[in-house]
Design a protein around this nucleic acid. Sequence first.
RNA 1: GCCGGAGUGGCGGAAUGGCAGACGCUGGAGACUUAAAAUCUUCUGCCAGAAAUGGCGUGCGGGUUCGAGUCCCGCCUCCGGCACCA
Length: 848
Amino acid sequence: MSSERYPFADIEKKWQERWARDGIYTSTVDASRPEFYCLEMFPYPSGRLHMGHVRNYSLGDVVARFFRMNGYNVLHPMGWDAFGLPAENAAIKRGIHPADWTNDNIAYMREQLKRLGVSYDWNREIATCSPDYYRWTQWLFLLFYKRGLAYKASSRVNWCPGCQTVLANEQVVDGECWRCHSQVQQKELEQWFLKITAYADRLLADLEKLPAWPERVKVMQQNWIGKSEGAEISFPVEGMDEKITVFTTRPDTLFGVTYMVLAPEHPLVEKLVAGRPEATRCREIAARSAPVTERERALQEKVGAPTGRYAVNPVNGERIPIWVANYVLMEYGTGAVMGVPAHDQRDFEFARQYGLPVRVVIRPEGLSSTPDPGQMEAAYEGPGIMVNSGSFDGLYSEDGKKHVVAWLEAHGVGRPQVQYRLRDWLISRQRYWGVPIPLVYCDRCGIVPVPEDDLPVLLPRDVDFRPGGPSPLARHQGFVSTTCPACGGPARRETDTMDTFVDSSWYFMRFASPHADRAPFEQDEVNYWLPVDQYIGGIEHAVMHLLYSRFFTKVLHDAGLVDFDEPFKALFTQGMVTLGGSAMSKSRGNIVDPDEIMDRYGADTARLFILFASPPERDLEWSERGVEGAYRFLNRVWRLAREFAEEYPNPDGARIVPERLSRRERDLRRKVHWTIKKVTDDIKERFSLNTAISAIMELVNDIYDFRQPGGNHAPTVSNGDGGARGGNSTGDGVAVLREAIESLVLLLAPFAPHITEELWQMLGKGASVHLQPWPSYDAEAAKAEEITVVIQVNGKVRDRVTVPQDIDEDALKEIALGRDKARAFIGQKAVRQVFVVPGKLVNIVTDA
RNA sequence: GCCGGAGUGGCGGAAUGGCAGACGCUGGAGACUUAAAAUCUUCUGCCAGAAAUGGCGUGCGGGUUCGAGUCCCGCCUCCGGCACCA
């Protein structure tokens, strides 16, 4: 055996050019074949690929190539999420125009992807910053606008001082900007929103339609949407023609209300306190809460003050003091709550702090008497029997909820209500490098949408990037001043651009018809390819991108533009690539550069290592030694196949006649077919690419054993002792070896596309290995002749015995009981029972 | 606090309730070589033993079972999501 190293650089370059020339990965609609849409999350063109990209795209490529070889018409496209802040920051810092910076990065990263050998249909490449694309993003925005799903409103929004723009709720993580980690501030601003809350219920309910999504992603979306069911209840304000409406999940505790609380910024506060001595203190609380984010507020001490006003409990006419307190959020529910200290921990703490009364109205189950409020150390939030609740006394609280709501509804003072934590999606950004919102402000006509025929509203190139002040677009007179599409009079353009997540909320549809110029996509094409059959990407998009995309898909579905209402049938979230235990990042300085790895070992090695080192959903620790192992393996495959091809250059050799094969030949053949089944199942059923690769490695090890003349290492599935006949000089042996090596190359092709292509050609086979049918599994050949059965005594393994595969239970039992080792452990004890698991083991159970 | 996931050799990791540690890395020994590298062969969970072999072993404590890494109950630790959401 030689120690030759294979020339990966030449091979990889050669085949990449050949594939591109022959267009073997281009796809078109073909109704005669099943389709498969395999998609990986497209990257932001930040400069160069990182290992996370390599992992993501290697995973996707295995899936795409596997389904292609299995006869599917595969769509596997790639593009660029090309709008975003880093481009603009580069412009500010280094004076490079964002468009140039972005296009340079795309050009470089495209070459890197090609170098990795990913089987994309490059004819479908898209970039969200291209006018051909963002024209349709604008068109979709107008569709939302016309359907009442895009609106402008003034509200308290998250402002990132670092990025100098507002952010969506989803983009604030632990009170910080998800991109630059600045402390986010609160500002009252007029902004554009998309009405995702109108779809909250469907976004939640339809998670059930996604069995092939990871549980944790669905749970994250569930948490984010945050549905809670309860009631809205109105309390009239004493002596005023006003009422306070609260949302509660506990209408069963309505008799336990001992105070009301308004959020400090609640519009009613001013009316209640105007001209009263309590006004000063209430306004103080409001002023202190105003600039603070919700998160910081959660950490603050509870502070409140009475307004001096009273409300009336509609259920029993009781007078209840109205307070203002910082623990009530204006953004959730109605901005007002009823205080039930006995059955809500927050209310309990607040009541204790300010000496408000506590009244128990739920008796915990199993308790014979009602707890004494003075003795309570915490609120009782569980269910129980209603007490001190008038005609509702004695009801179980869960049933009581319905009865109380029915009573309220009958008296016109309440109704059932569902609340969501989800807020509408704020999409305005005060930045340049994004899609202009296609609207015009006219003093006469108000807000006027730009007519579809005038799209796209082009982003001007000549803008002023100096930081500070209004956004570059707002400073660009040529952009701002326009004429009103309705009346022709002078008008101003909207200068906000859209959140880049709008761009990525529909790109997977554009791939179906990337060149369509009369619509965002052709309907027949989008309905042929979509939904995406397998979507692959990072967990960091569990809420943002994946929720927004689901929302877009549902709106487009309702508008009759697409047939499907969920975009991604199956989702796979890959783990991070780490070095030294933490994510690779520039600031940590623990980067491994994909280019460097490809220079040293080639793309196939890089791909193979990253797929082998860890199960795809788990984090992967980078290991230089591991990379070398992958490289060593590919060299082993190379030498094996090349030497065989040299020895037996003519591929039309003897056919395999199973009855004529020697024991060794049958054993190898069994391993080949076992491997085919294992690799197929691992890819298709389990996404277990690391074990698929290990199975291929086992096959290679066994082929090496087979070739070794004196070798007596039987293939591991055979359980046999190999047999005396060495070598493979017979025609049968060559045929078996050929089958093994050809199968090996085919099975390895999705993982290591270049080396397998070269070997396939070397073996004298015809067209591209990637266009070959996936090897089929022969159950007959895979069947074991002999099996090793474990013999246990009282559950402990004491012996092993090799028996014919089809031995019957009784015979096996006899053999087991007759074994010397088994008898030694049985000793004088009586055999009570013998368990036989066919093909696996015998367990002899004795008396103690 | 609520929800989700994970915990297995020196390391990455494998195991439809049925041989724990496949495969790879690391390390040891040998072959080839003037030598080294590469390659090939072989061993490599822990303890005892010269060996045969025996005992122990999947975060901890219980349980179900002929048999548990796997199922059930109760904990611990780590990772992630949500959290003053009424």
